[in-house]
């Protein structure tokens, strides 16, 4: 069985974004970069499938510059993926979800994958579109935001959390699944495996190597702007809670005009 895990390197959620004025491009020079946390669920699930069965090969696939290799080694290969494919191409620098999905689909066609696992969204752009587009382009079944997975003969059963309950979905394989928190607990790589990860195969290709042309963006980011500054905070100084409540109600009614 062949599993592909599509991953993305994203800025650490604690990274301070320097955004003093509106801009079309963020200054990413000081970013600490990590594996997208939802992709870690995808990696872990693939490794669990490999540990439970025999003859499973996991390929981690990503798009990005040379700096993604550190994340691929530590968070994919050291955790249990067998090999990695890095698609590095300046043409992809500002690619939108459709373009990314086109290129990833071209890479996924190179081998007959039974499962494609992805995080359900990346925490940087919060788009959540790429896996769905891949499923469409490859003609595979797609189940989103899964919280449990069981594999059968050519089929799979997945649980999805829905509003107020749980949905149990059966799908045929090959399939594209997106992983949600709750699916598993991603492990830390053992240190000896981090040291050995560099010995696992990692191939770097361009879009031309994959025989795919990057389509023009359908969507373009026009501007990032900082959130509006928070207004002044007014502290109600009252003798007792009842007086404070009366004053709060008066302010909400007369000044804020919300009640």
């Amino acid at each position: 069985m062949k599993i592909a895990v599509c991953v993305k390197q994203v800025p650490d959620s604690e990274t301070r974004i320097n955004l003093a004025a509106p801009t079309a491009e963020l200054d990413s020079s000081g970013f600490t970069r990590i594996l997208n946390p939802y992709d870690a669920y995808a990696v872990e699930e693939a490794v669990k499938i490999k540990e439970a069965g025999s003859d499973v090969e996991i390929t981690a696939i990503t798009i990005g510059p040379d700096t993604v290799k550190e994340t691929l080694k530590k968070d994919c290969l050291a955790v249990g993926c067998d090999k990695a494919l890095v698609i590095t191409d300046p043409a992809l620098d500002h690619a939108d979800a459709a373009a990314i999905a086109t290129v990833l689909s071209a890479a996924l066609k190179k081998e007959p994958y039974d499962l494609v696992l992805c995080g359900f969204k990346a925490i940087d752009d919060d788009n959540g579109q790429v896996p769905i587009l891949i499923a469409e382009k490859l003609g595979m079944a797609h189940v989103s935001t899964i919280t449990s997975l069981e594999l059968g003969e050519g089929t799979l059963t997945a649980h999805r959390e829905i509003e107020g309950g749980k949905e149990i979905v059966q799908a045929s394989m090959p399939a594209v699944l997106t992983c949600q928190k709750g699916l598993n607990e991603p492990r830390l790589p053992s240190l000896p495996n981090i040291m050995k990860a560099g010995m696992k195969p990692m191939e770097t290709v361009t879009c031309a190597d994959l025989g795919v042309e990057v389509p023009a963006n359908l969507v373009q980011i026009k501007q990032y702007s900082p959130p509006p500054a928070r207004g002044e905070c007014k502290l109600i100084d009252a003798e007792d809670p009842a007086a404070a409540a009366r004053e709060l109600a008066r302010l909400l009614n007369e000044e804020a005009k919300v009640i």
Binding site: E70, K73, K74, P189, I194, M195
Partner: peptide, 8 residues
């Protein structure tokens, strides 16, 4: 890279 991975 490996040493930094260990630290993290």
């Amino acid at each position: 890279d490996e040493e930094r991975g260990v630290v993290q």
